[in-house]
Simulated assay, not measured.
Amino acid sequence: MPHRDDDSFELPAQAVVLASDDRRAVQAFRIGGSAWGLRFPLEADSATVVDEEARATLTALEPWRECLLARFTALAAGRAEHTATRAFFTRRAGAWEDRFAYQTPAYEAAVARMGLGRGQTALDLGCGTGRAMPALRARVGGEGTVLGVDVTDAMLAAARTGRCDAGQLLLADCTRLPLPSGSVHGIFAAGLLDHLPHPRTALREWARVSAAEGTLLIFHPAGRAERAARHGRPLSPDDPLAEPNLRPAPATTGWRLAVYDDAEQHFLARAVVAG
């Protein structure tokens, strides 16, 4: 929306102001989950300005304007994946636990294969309602740390309702974890890796936060063939979890694949930090 620098405009009632300063009440804003706005003087076109000093200033600004708008566009595009994920899971968060409660024993059995010890730190990435967190807590004990990480606040709210004693919850991007390097002993990731736009970026980040001999368990409570049949499609050779695709990925991201188990009733891949 082009406007003069001294123009004023009112944002819709549902807009959220992201940045402001003493001169302008709105510098950047968000509307809903999929629209962002950035205010920058678009009249910075030297050809339309008569005053020579102002023209020189605006001429100097023009490349910065293009750079700023390009970076803001890239930021908005990068958040689009999170926006879609949040929109999908926010609508389903309230019923998620009841719908999938029957899978809890499968989660417990998968966690048991991680080899966690008491006093260690475990992450449940893409934790949703936190179904794996009680099992992780049982493995690391009261002296250990369990952290559930998800990008959708509504899912974390559902986890807080029933699993607040199992561990701490963190709203964060699993590909940019606010955790120190080498601080985690076990990572549980259920139904997550194959839904990420850049799986290898995620694997590198998970390796960064993992301690020596740390464990990663990639899990789904149904095998690849069963899930494909459920959705009425054949198995895809491009599936990130297909063995020819998954096996080389850990080797280039700081992991060593130790177990690949694509059974009818579950999918499970266990990797350890490459030494």
Rank of each mutant, 00 (worst) to 15 (best):
R200N: 11
E264C: 08
G130R: 03
E264F: 04
T215F: 00
L125M: 01
L125A: 00
V26G: 01
N245D: 11
M133C: 08
S34N: 09
R247P: 04
E43I: 04
L61R: 14
E62C: 05
P2Y: 05
A77M: 07
H220S: 13
A95P: 04
R4H: 08
L18E: 13
A70G: 15
E108T: 14
T152C: 06
H82A: 14
D150H: 01
A271W: 02
L196H: 00
E62A: 15
A95E: 13
H266G: 07
H231L: 12
F72Q: 02
A76R: 13
G142A: 13
S20R: 10
E53F: 06
L169G: 06
E213D: 15
G232T: 14
E143A: 15
A87H: 08
G32H: 05
G37E: 05
W206S: 03
E226I: 12
A229H: 08
V272E: 14
Q27G: 13
L193A: 06
R176S: 03
E10W: 11
S210R: 01
L246M: 03
P234A: 14
A222C: 06
A271C: 15
A70V: 07
R160Y: 11
Q168K: 12
R79E: 13
H198Y: 00
E97N: 10
V146H: 06
R4K: 05
L193H: 03
E143Q: 14
D238C: 03
M114D: 07
T129M: 00
R256I: 09
P197N: 08
L235G: 15
G275H: 07
S181G: 10
P197G: 10
R176K: 08
C67P: 01
A93S: 12
T145P: 03
F88Q: 11
A28Y: 05
F219R: 06
A76M: 11
R86V: 09
A263S: 02
Y107I: 07
T59V: 00
L192Y: 00
T83W: 07
A154R: 06
F40V: 15
L123D: 03
L136V: 03
A106D: 12
L38K: 02
R247Y: 06
G128P: 02
Y107D: 09
A13D: 05
P244I: 03
R139Y: 05
L61K: 11
P63Y: 08
A25G: 15
T104V: 13
R163A: 09
A28S: 10
L268Y: 07
G119S: 14
L68A: 15
P244W: 07
R137M: 10
A242V: 00
F29S: 04
L268H: 07
L69F: 13
D6A: 08
Y102D: 11
P2S: 09
L192T: 00
R39D: 04
Q265S: 14
F9Y: 11
V50Y: 04
A132Q: 00
S183P: 01
L42C: 04
G128E: 02
A135N: 00
A101W: 10
T104N: 07
